[in-house]
Design a protein around this nucleic acid. Structure first.
Lengths: 242, 242
DNA sequence: AAGTTGAGAGGACAGTTGTTCACTGACTTC
DNA sequence: GAAGTCAGTGAACAACTGTCCTCTCAACTT
């Protein structure tokens, strides 16, 4: 048993590594990553500043690790939402309930992602963007299987998924703010708004294709270029060469 | 002329104050407010660190001033969008064009708002939230005058306005990222997506009321409670007492 | 013309920061 | 059981931070 990669040694290392992550996450509740200090983190853990380097090159690297931790558990969440095959209305309620639960159980993670998504550390921004991208891809795949998506172009399903994901992240962040600054009343207001907005989006979705994609001829022209080609029918039309 | 409040004196003061704001805004392109240093700012301007205190108590106060500067000009922008009475499709194109222009002309302001909206400085977060709230109110007032909004409840117009505003802010931030990290192609992708998402929302808006507000009886019950009361019809119903 | 004001300078203060280096000693391997 | 690995230590480093105090001197007031 003691032959393969070390046992107690690596376990203890992982333990302090996790302690560093936890301490950082705690400190990040009231500041942003780019202002967080290395010593500040090690002080909370109760370890020498130099010990930090055994685990991360710098705080940016720790930040990226935090992203994985925060958004990894999120993939579990989306499965929960997409698993059930409810009607549109119940699906919205379930979705929001899951978001509420997630915010309640992982407030620091939610705050971290919301804050650092546009934060001052490039590597972390990219890590979050990448993770949310994977997230959107999952949602898109699930949306595609639903009857409402019949006849939809893949890029359109994807743009809808991205709209949903962004809305959920935003709602989670707002929910968090409301929870600790506005009280029960503010929370209810956020929930109410999120529900209605999702309802409206879902409504737009159901009527997409009827008249949403402009005229038929334009829709055809677009079908060949796609999202990466040009910006479609508009006042400021781009050349199709791209 | 020299009788009333000072002339040259106050003018010079305003000048260095503006220099401090500009310097801070520049430095904030690559870090967040909570990591910005007082000395860092004064060094760029070329004044003594202590001079800072003549204008702001601390960097948080400077941040709030930056919010006003950044979001003040934004109100002009919304007037431009809402002024024209185009058809829905052209309105979307015009809107996005205005956003693109704004991002091109005030990139640092856009980045600042996007970053500090969920940033680590409470006072600044609140300032941004307040300003975006005023902004949403303006949009709501404009939406209300449009024929499509006939029969809409005020809270629903407001929630739509907030959806639009959030989408525009997000789009501006994404546009900025794309512009300086992804090249022309990435910018076009963002524009394409934003256009489609607005289109879908606008579509949902046109069909709101047909079936969007659940059943009639429930819609009635909601009409009395409103957004601040409780969360309306859902699986996890709240008591009406609050 | 004399007196007041206040923006900014400059020095000094105690703390804090990230990073380096040689070190210890419990665990792992042979 | 000897040898080696390596997570964590502790001291020292130069650089930096925000804030305090006293000072100057141009612009203003009367």
């Amino acid at each position: 048993m003691s032959h393969s990669v070390g046992g107690v040694r690596q376990a203890q290392k992982q333990k302090t590594r996790q302690a560093l992550l936890d301490a950082a996450l705690g400190l990040l509740e009231e500041q942003s990553l780019s202002s967080l200090g290395l010593r500040e983190v090690t002080r909370v853990v109760g370890v020498a500043p130099t010990a930090f380097y055994r685990h991360f090159r710098d705080l940016g690297e720790l930040g990226v690790a935090l992203v994985e931790e925060a958004l990894g558990s999120l993939h579990v969440m989306v499965r929960a939402i997409l698993a059930e095959q409810d009607a549109a209305e119940e699906r919205i309620d379930r979705t929001i309930a899951v978001v509420e639960r997630h915010v309640r159980e992982h407030p620091a993670h939610v705050r971290f992602v919301a804050r650092e998504r546009r934060g001052g550390v490039r590597a972390v921004r990219h890590a979050i963007a990448g993770e949310l991208d994977r997230f959107a891809a999952e949602v898109a795949a699930a949306l595609k299987t639903q009857p409402v998506s019949a006849g939809w172009r893949d890029e359109d399903v994807r743009m809808l998924a991205e709209l949903y994901v962004d809305r959920l992240v935003t709602t989670a962040a707002e929910l968090l703010d409301a929870r600790e600054e506005g009280g029960e009343e503010a929370v209810e207001r956020v929930v109410w708004r999120a529900r209605r907005q999702l309802r409206l989006i879902s409504l737009g979705r159901r009527h997409w294709g009827e008249e949403g994609q402009a005229s038929a001829s334009v829709a055809e022209a677009e079908a060949e270029s796609g999202p990466s080609g040009l910006s479609g029918p508009s006042g400021s039309a781009e050349p199709s060469g791209g």
